[in-house]
Write a protein that binds this DNA or RNA. Structure first.
Length: 276
DNA sequence: CTTTACGCCTGACGGC
DNA sequence: TGCCGTCAGGCGTAAA
């Protein structure tokens, strides 16, 4: 289940293969992803990849501008079960390999997604104005993210802090696994109303979010069930997890059994003694 | 404005 | 062995 560290790992895996290469072909075998893969993605053919980058969990393949200066490129989201792998264009196609981006080098970026919650779209506007990106909050690893920001945006909010930090309009890239982890590290109970948390504790939470995401990226992400990086390898952060999927097991700090509770339709894990 | 529930989809797993 | 129900979850969207 790709969260921000898994998307970042994927980005780092595909960038060297894609940047400064020309896209020779885009092969769509199955266009029924979250939204249909549009015919416009064929506009990528014959154009060079200027830069691969990431905004939230969206991967952006930015192409060199056309003669008239028009920018454009591919927008990819891995959804729940998606992955991109680097292979040879001639390699055998596997189950759920929905789209290929073939490069002039003969290499291929192959999009595989069993659950098809993923996204493969074309963009040609200033990408920050794209409907999927325009109302997103700051990147958690950027300077624009801080405890002060969380504190300010939480004013008047009565919902659980766990839902608050998973809201992409507040801060992007904090998914279900890392939300539980960061709240545990900061000693904050996941159901606590977001508006009832001190500035000092929000500082600790922002630091925990940065810390856990940064460390997960260093480990190549978390593989619980199906995440694979662009070389087909799992991530190794699962062994570092402190509470996620540890229901009933002793808290590493106080030995109390870790609890699981569904908050906002999602499993949340926490220590009832260490988190208030 | 905030908050909540839903649905898209396949694979893994448990019970019978 | 097979079948069926349940769960997993990112996130846009509709509804409250």
């Amino acid at each position: 289940m790709p969260e921000l560290p898994e998307v970042e790992t994927t980005l780092r895996g595909i960038s060297p293969t894609m940047e400064n290469r020309t896209i020779s072909e885009v092969v769509v075998r199955n266009s029924s992803l979250r939204w249909p893969v549009p015919e416009e993605v064929q506009q990528a053919c014959g154009r060079m990849v200027r830069r691969c980058w990431r905004r939230a969990k969206y991967l952006l393949i930015e192409l060199d501008p056309l003669a008239d200066g028009a920018v454009g490129g591919l927008l990819i989201h891995l959804g729940m079960s998606g992955s991109l792998r680097v292979c040879e264009a001639a390699d055998a196609v596997r189950k759920h390999d929905h789209v290929d981006v073939v490069l002039d080098s003969g290499k291929c970026i192959r999009f595989n997604d069993p659950r098809r919650f993923g996204v493969f779209l074309w963009w040609n506007e200033p990408v920050q104005d794209h409907r999927l990106l325009k109302s997103l909050g700051p990147e958690p690893l950027s300077r624009g993210f801080s405890g002060d920001l969380l504190r300010q945006k939480s004013r008047g909010r009565k919902g659980a802090v766990k839902n608050f930090i998973m809201d992409g309009k507040i801060v992007v890239g904090v998914g279900n696994i890392y939300a539980s982890e960061a709240l545990y590290m900061a000693g904050i109970h996941p159901t606590r109303p977001a508006g009832r948390i001190s500035a000092q504790r929000y500082d600790a939470l922002a630091a925990a979010i940065r810390d856990v995401l940064g460390r997960a990226i260093m480990h190549g992400g978390t593989t619980l069930r199906d995440f694979l990086d662009s070389d087909g390898n799992p991530g190794y952060f699962a062994q570092e997890l402190l509470v996620y999927e540890r229901e009933g097991l002793p808290c590493f700090q106080c030995q109390a059994p870790i609890r699981r509770k569904v908050i906002g339709q999602r499993s949340s894990y926490y220590c009832p003694k260490c988190q208030r």
